[in-house]
Amino acid sequence: MSRARALAASLPEELHLLPYVAAYEWRKATAFRAGFVLNALLRGVPRPVVMTLVYLAMFRSTGAAEIRGYTFVDLVHFLVWTAAIQKCIPDWRSLDLAEQIFDGYVTKYLVMPVSYFTLLWGRFLQFTAVQLLAAAAFWCAGALVLHSWWPQPVSAVALAQAATLLALGTGCYLLTYFILNCLAFWLDVVWSLLNMFMFVAAFMSGMLVPVALMPRAVRGVLEVTFPYWTVNAPVELLLGRLGPADFRFGLAVLATSFVALHGLAFVTWRRGLRRYAGVGT
């Protein structure tokens, strides 16, 4: 109980620090300018390009006009939106915590009067701000070149709802990466776990194949997980395939996941620190 009170007492201080941490992360991220721009531009783009070619081949060879209510153009629109959304989702390289644990770099934060979670959310703020801009630039560029053919959000409300889900969902992604990184306190196979999660999450989120095209049983499971509500559901909201009731359900799923993951992240971090030896110092 007293720990909870201490946490609450330090909250204003941590919030005060957030923008400074974000600004530091921004300076760090832009230290290598060319790499930074390239990464912001290319993130999320190669996959939809490849998938478009795959769908093209499928429609050509089967001669079908649509698959489960999705025409070829619908699928391409779906891919365009997943590309924009993927730009905003942290990937396993957004955190170097496992490396810091292995190499003993976490040490310096442990003697500072700041919570590691503040550093985490500061980085998240910076990343999200930059990638939102990159996603907007991507969409505008497409709209300029391809005009009315480029997908538009069905309504401003749908856009706001999609953005809300995305914000919460990316937080869930970050926490999951954080927890997996924390396993470096115990394991030395964190990279493979992160890669596995990346792949499974890509499937669950509908980035590989729209969840609507999957068997009913799979859909049922995915619809209570955060990757689905972070990517696939916002895209369908933007396409007008989901409505306000779905949005409310998704919001509940994401909020629950977020709280649960945050709790788990907190516990993993505390337990891990008890095992931390700060090797190599």
Partner: peptide
């Protein structure tokens, strides 16, 4: 308490490397 102490490690930078 943490505000009252400081640590310098010869083999590990306490400052941030990239800035």
């Amino acid at each position: 308490d943490k505000r009252r102490l400081s640590l310098v490690m010869g083999q590990r930078s306490q400052l941030w490397w990239d800035i």
